[in-house]
């Protein structure tokens, strides 16, 4: 997952990830890409469109 620099680390993506694979830090998002099944829900909910594959 590519996290664009305008990500605001609000964590909405982490809240909706059905597998709980996104760890939100203060200024970082850590994705467990290995277990991700690419449902793309995190990309769709981002309020500032900061995520892309």
């Amino acid at each position: 997952m590519i996290v664009n620099e305008w990500c605001m680390y609000c964590g909405e993506c982490a809240g909706v990830c059905p597998r709980n694979l996104i760890l939100l830090k203060e200024t970082d998002l850590v994705f467990d890409d290995f277990r991700c099944n690419e449902c793309d829900i995190c990309i769709r909910v981002c309020p500032v469109s900061a995520l892309k594959k």
């Binding site: 909405e12 809240g15 909706v16 059905p18 709980n20 829900i41 769709r44 909910v45 981002c46 309020p47």
Partner: peptide, 10 residues
């Protein structure tokens, strides 16, 4: 966990 339909994006 929250379903996308139940998460208001603000």
């Amino acid at each position: 966990g929250i379903k996308p339909k139940d998460m208001e994006s603000g």
